[in-house]
Write a protein that binds this DNA or RNA. Structure first.
Length: 211
DNA sequence: AAAACGGGGGC
DNA sequence: GCCCCAGTTTT
């Protein structure tokens, strides 16, 4: 059977869209920091608690790390994240007039902001054509046979060659939902999968994949 | 390349 | 009880 990868991507996007209610780039940046290695529910709890007490970058820039511990604890790694959130806030206030920069290069200078977080902020916060290769994107792209890669960096390069830029962000978000509901790391629900007819890994016994 | 950070949920 | 989560930084 002939594969149409773009069509498969659109299918994932239409079946598992990811909505983003927040629009303030700063709040998206902080939420994305909180979301690192943590599930959505825990991220939302932490973000809600945090923003109920601190409304903006200026207020957060004056806080102490210990002030945030209890608020963001559900998101895990709360000591590091508290420290970084305040460091980021100070940098934004001191060097960026309180605004979040909208380029990959500038975002990567912020503490706790790596390639994945930066790309999520670029897409969700600024609507740019960005692709954040997280564990879901890496795992699913390889299972589907879209790419054959070892590292997220390789996956990013290869995916960008076969997926049109306007789909990068939407596919990225949809893959997260798809990965949580169907194409899970362990015991994926291939029987219920919309791509089981084309996926080379469908119905196989899948072990957790190396990153 | 590997360790450290980390609470919460699924199985 | 073990494994994983829209990872990044340090050793």
């Amino acid at each position: 059977m002939k594969r149409d990868i773009v069509e498969e991507a659109n299918k994932i996007i239409s079946h598992f869209p990811r909505f983003h209610s927040e629009e303030d780039p700063f709040k998206i940046l902080i939420e994305t920091i909180l979301s690192q290695r943590t599930r959505d529910e825990n991220t939302e709890k932490a973000a809600k608690a945090l923003f109920s007490k601190y409304n903006n970058v200026f207020e957060l820039s004056k806080a102490q790390p210990e002030d945030l511990y209890e608020l963001i604890k559900p998101s895990g790694m709360y000591k590091q994240k508290s420290k970084r959130i305040i460091e980021i806030s100070k940098i934004l206030v001191d060097q960026y007039n309180g605004e979040v920069p909208d380029t990959l290069e500038e975002l990567l200078k912020l503490p706790g902001v790596g390639r994945k977080t930066a790309n999520i902020v670029l897409y969700v916060g600024f609507g740019k054509k960005a692709l954040a290769v997280d564990t879901h994107v890496h795992r699913i792209s390889n299972r589907l046979g879209w790419v054959n890669t070892k590292t997220p960096e390789e996956t990013e390069d290869e995916l960008k060659k076969i997926i049109p830029p306007e789909l990068w962000g939407p596919l990225n978000g949809a893959m997260v939902n798809f990965g949580q509901k169907i194409c899970k790391p362990i015991s994926p629900k291939c029987f219920d999968c919309i791509l089981k007819d084309v996926c080379p890994s469908a119905n196989q016994f899948l072990k957790p994949e190396k990153k």
